[in-house]
């Protein structure tokens, strides 16, 4: 499939990119477009570089990201801000699961 070829070509490119990034000591979140998380105690999580909201309930928020999603579990969760650059989750946060490849 065309998509498969593209992804295998992409992974080769990724490897070159990876070694280049290590060599040049570049920030990975910028180069690979990875999510960047800022956690403030158990009350706030800021997810930058997100790919939209996958699911939202008061007990769980799943935020889409490059290569998977970020799962935030807790209680009384609110989306304090939803911007194109970042999502801010507020509430009593119990767990953060990174389901990234």
């Amino acid at each position: 499939m065309a998509q498969g070829e593209k992804s295998s070509g992409g992974s080769k490119l990724r490897r070159v990119e990876s070694s280049l990034v290590e060599l040049l000591d570049l920030p990975a979140d910028v180069v690979f477009d990875l999510p960047r998380l800022t956690v403030i105690g158990n009350r706030r999580v800021v997810v930058q570089n997100h790919r939209g909201i996958v699911a939202y309930t008061p007990r769980q928020v799943r935020v889409g990201a490059t290569g998977g999603e970020v799962e935030i579990t807790g209680e009384e969760l609110q989306l304090e801000a939803i911007l194109s650059e970042e999502v801010v989750v507020r509430g009593r946060i119990a767990r953060i699961n990174l389901r990234l490849t």
Partner: peptide, 16 residues
């Protein structure tokens, strides 16, 4: 929410 976000809108204090 994602569709609106794609429109360049933004929200805050979203809750059920």
């Amino acid at each position: 929410l994602n569709l609106a976000l794609a429109q360049g809108l933004y929200f805050w204090d979203a809750r059920w």
